Simulated assay, not measured.
Amino acid sequence: MRQVIHHLSVQARGRGLVEFTDDARRFVDDTDIRTGLLTVFCRHTSASLLIQENADPSVRRDLERYFEAVAPEDRERYEHDTEGPDDMPAHLRTALTQVQLSVPVEHGRMLLGTWQGLYLFEHRRHPQPRDIVLHLLGE
């Protein structure tokens, strides 16, 4: 059994979904692990991870609108606003999604479905780099 860890910097241009499937695929390809499990971990509390459709951009727009309705910016609603009015809504959106994903690897390839992609879901308005940890365990 072997394991490999890689830190991936994903640049978010502000609130929204940023696909990084190709970066994760290159990481898996660069190892000699043929069968295993890829864990993807987001090291932030105001951004999260999704496996989501990557064929139709309207899916991403609908997701963003949905989360805007579920956790809107509203200075009267939240006590926590240390980093601005988008701070607490970003934490809520992260709490409703996930910061860790697991993807099986077989024959040296991630077993994502035909239309599935890996996404960073940035919940803050301002551009910033996000640290994503890729951990592949297998043989």
Results as ranks from 00 to 15, higher is better:
Q3V: 11
Q3H: 14
V4D: 10
H6T: 01
H6A: 09
H7I: 14
H7K: 04
L8H: 02
L8I: 04
S9H: 08
Q11D: 12
Q11H: 12
Q11T: 09
A12T: 08
R15H: 14
L17R: 02
V18H: 08
V18Q: 06
V18A: 12
V18W: 04
D22Y: 12
D23H: 07
A24V: 03
R25L: 14
R26H: 12
F27P: 10
F27Y: 09
V28K: 06
D29H: 11
D32T: 15
D32R: 11
R34Q: 15
R34I: 05
T35A: 09
G36N: 13
G36K: 07
L38V: 00
L38C: 09
L38W: 14
T39C: 07
T39Q: 10
C42N: 11
C42Q: 11
R43V: 00
H44F: 02
T45A: 10
T45Q: 12
T45H: 13
S46D: 09
A47I: 04
A47S: 15
S48L: 00
L50G: 05
L50H: 05
I51M: 03
Q52Y: 00
E53M: 00
N54L: 01
N54S: 09
A55W: 08
A55R: 10
P57L: 02
P57F: 01
P57S: 05
P57M: 03
S58K: 02
R60E: 00
D62F: 06
E64L: 14
R65F: 01
A69M: 10
A69C: 05
V70W: 09
P72F: 12
P72W: 13
R75F: 00
R75L: 03
R75K: 00
R77L: 14
R77C: 11
R77H: 15
H80S: 04
H80Q: 10
D81Y: 04
D81F: 04
T82W: 12
T82G: 06
T82L: 15
E83F: 09
E83W: 13
P85Y: 11
P85S: 10
P89S: 08
A90D: 07
H91N: 14
H91M: 06
L92K: 05
L92C: 12
V99T: 13
L101Q: 04
V103C: 03
P104C: 03
P104F: 11
V105W: 05
V105S: 01
E106G: 05
E106P: 01
H107Y: 10
G108F: 04
G108C: 09
R109E: 13
M110F: 07
G113E: 06
T114D: 14
T114F: 12
T114L: 13
W115H: 08
W115L: 09
G117N: 07
G117V: 06
G117K: 06
Y119R: 05
L120P: 01
E122W: 11
E122S: 08
E122L: 06
E122F: 09
R124Y: 11
R124S: 06
P127F: 14
P127W: 15
Q128T: 15
P129S: 13
P129A: 13
R130P: 10
R130K: 11
I132R: 02
I132H: 05
L134W: 10
H135Q: 13
H135N: 04
L136C: 05
L136R: 08
L136G: 00
L137N: 13
G138H: 15
G138K: 13
G138D: 15
G138T: 07
